[in-house]
Design a protein around this nucleic acid. Sequence first.
DNA 1: TTTTTTATGTTGCATTTGCAACAGACTTAT
DNA 2: ATAAGTCTGTTGCAAATGCAACATAAAAAA
Lengths: 208, 208
Amino acid sequence: MKDNLEISKFINEFSSNCSKVQVKDFEKGETITTFLVNRNQFCILISGIADLVRYDYNGNRIVTERFSDNSIFGETFYKINTNSEFVVEAKDKCKVLLFSYDDINQKCKAHCSFHKKLIDFFPTLVISKITDLTSRIDLLSRRSTRDKLLGYFNLLSKEYGKSFTLPFSITELANYLVVDRSSMSRELAILKKENFIKQDRNKITLLY
Amino acid sequence: MKDNLEISKFINEFSSNCSKVQVKDFEKGETITTFLVNRNQFCILISGIADLVRYDYNGNRIVTERFSDNSIFGETFYKINTNSEFVVEAKDKCKVLLFSYDDINQKCKAHCSFHKKLIDFFPTLVISKITDLTSRIDLLSRRSTRDKLLGYFNLLSKEYGKSFTLPFSITELANYLVVDRSSMSRELAILKKENFIKQDRNKITLLY
DNA sequence: TTTTTTATGTTGCATTTGCAACAGACTTAT
DNA sequence: ATAAGTCTGTTGCAAATGCAACATAAAAAA
């Protein structure tokens, strides 16, 4: 995603230097963290893929956000809403950096090399996160499934051209766009019939 | 919103010190900026209220984001998608700080007092923005109008208790939750009938 | 004040979407 | 290789939502 080499160097540098920080490994399916109260927990995903999942009052599982290399997440960024439960789940092997934002921001300030490095990286990490969230909102603020799909395909085509593989399975894409999977499939079928796109599973080609 | 006094002091301090930064005033209805290409433009709203508006291919006007004191916005945070046009419009008198993120981040680094102060404020500003965006996504990831409404009311009640005035008009709330105004009104009527809420225009009381 | 504009609430109707159920393809584990 | 599990595409049907039109209330402008 971003300059991974730099970030890796960063990790090596800090880990011995700051007592406030932990690095942990998680296996596929494990819970990395839950958002319960505001402990100002702050995490950086070093490697792997993880999903922020919300379980609503009906027990429905909704993927609210997806994290990959260098994504930041944690309670720090959340208004905890006790009506839903939030869990970050590892989609595959994950390496995660965990710390309390308060520790870093206040107690450690200017005292440890990790903190100094974090100040350097912080803007890149957060701007990237804001960009992602904003794109997502842009998509979710479209009312029809068709507009969501075309909007998303458009974003991808800016980066990868007319032909690309989705970073999601079809099922996950429906989650990401917050539409019913079968309805989305139906809309994809219409787009295919109208020769707007070609689709084979999660491989898409735009024909316009 | 956040510690306005601090931010005001900050503004007085920098404005003479950094040639890369401008402060501009806008009247109600004026366009503050448009997101066209990536000039890495970065803005901080000092006072007033402004909306980020998207005009889609049909000319529909969609409010994507609302900014108030100390909100940050700009192209820096956007994946520019040429299929829609983005405009930031002043809802009332606005005072805005404008600069290029690159200028601040690279050319000015450690050279001017504005830059040094910005580093101090940056985490607070961005974390607040991320929190807002995340809450919005949490709301938009609910499929029914009822869940969106109750989710939003719930957030407000955490801050203000069972009785509060929406920071939006009813029409704007429908925009924010990305639902049709009349449908939302219908759902509000049902919630009233079922004695979940009391409502008088944008004043809400939760009865549960 | 009066007039004009904008916001709100309501309702009928058409459309879209979600839900449920199922069959076939693909993947993973045994 | 076989079996079990998951993912995908399809369809009928019910429910939710968007759209349009209108009346009334409130706010802004004259």
